[in-house]
């Protein structure tokens, strides 16, 4: 049995204005090859990364928002979104992409990836991680 670690990527920046969101996503995709227990957290401006309807032709940057919906294929099945951060920004879950993963063991049943949690719940999840990466 390999030593499986619980890794959490903590995302706190908006996309496009800085490189953090894209860098984090790339690290997640590369890291997914290592068979670890990976989860993602989005709080503060990080919640903006998951919004629907992004269209980047006008700013000449790659629109990487579609990649979040591939995370299920990379076995990233737990995406925590902080409730307080959404509310502060006037957003609800409906403003975010609908992210799912398919459970191979249950005949590819589609399951929700996003878990809406409040700060206290997210703190509990964080306290159970082995390693956290902040972006």
């Amino acid at each position: 049995m390999p030593d499986v670690k619980k890794l959490m990527y903590v995302n706190r920046r908006a996309p496009y204005g800085t490189i953090y969101a894209w860098e984090s996503l790339e690290v997640v995709l590369v890291g997914a090859a290592f068979d670890q227990d990976v989860s993602l957290a989005f709080l503060d401006d990080g919640v903006y990364q998951l919004t629907r309807g992004q269209s980047t032709e006008g700013i000449g940057m790659k629109n990487f928002s579609a990649i979040y919906s591939a995370l299920g294929d990379y076995e990233v099945t737990r995406i925590y979104v902080e409730k307080e951060s959404l509310e502060e920004r006037g957003l609800t879950l409906d403003d975010l992409q609908h992210l799912t993963w398919e459970d191979e063991d249950e005949d590819w049943a589609e399951k929700e990836s996003i878990r809406l949690v409040d700060r206290a719940e997210l703190a509990d999840v964080m306290s159970n991680q082995d390693v956290m990466f902040n972006f």
Binding site: A32, A33, N63, A66, A70, Y74
Partner: peptide
Amino acid sequence: EYQIAPAVRVLTKA
């Protein structure tokens, strides 16, 4: 669809 070239094991599964 996803704007990404999938890793081998992701490709295999898909």
